[in-house]
């Protein structure tokens, strides 16, 4: 049988990654549907599909920028006052 400690850790990591991905997909769809499909037609047009691709990339780029910026604050907070990231 595999190491129970390792098994738990793997499962926690996997769950965390899954819920992170799920949150991202949900947000991307929410924003991009709003922006790219203002008037839903009988099918997704090629313009809408292109917009969706750009929008997805843009949202993920935004996520990365926010992540970098926010982590900078959190790290500063840890040096000054502990756990400012936990609001």
């Amino acid at each position: 049988m595999s190491d129970p400690k390792q098994a738990i850790m793997d499962q926690v990591r996997q769950q965390a990654a899954l819920s992170n991905a799920r949150a991202l997909i949900e947000k991307v769809n929410e924003h991009c549907f709003e922006r790219c499909v203002p008037k839903p037609g009988s099918s997704l047009s090629s313009a809408e599909t292109t917009c969706y691709t750009y929008c997805m990339e843009k949202y993920m780029a935004s996520w990365n920028t926010v992540s970098r910026q926010y982590l900078g604050h959190v790290q500063q907070g840890v040096q000054g006052q502990a756990a400012f990231g936990a609001f």
Binding site: A16, N20, K27, H31, W63, V66, S67, Y70, G85, A86
Partner: peptide, 17 residues
Amino acid sequence: QKAQIQSTIHSLTDTCF
């Protein structure tokens, strides 16, 4: 703690986007 930080990043990205 990581999950908490990630969830803050999600909501900040939402607001700022």
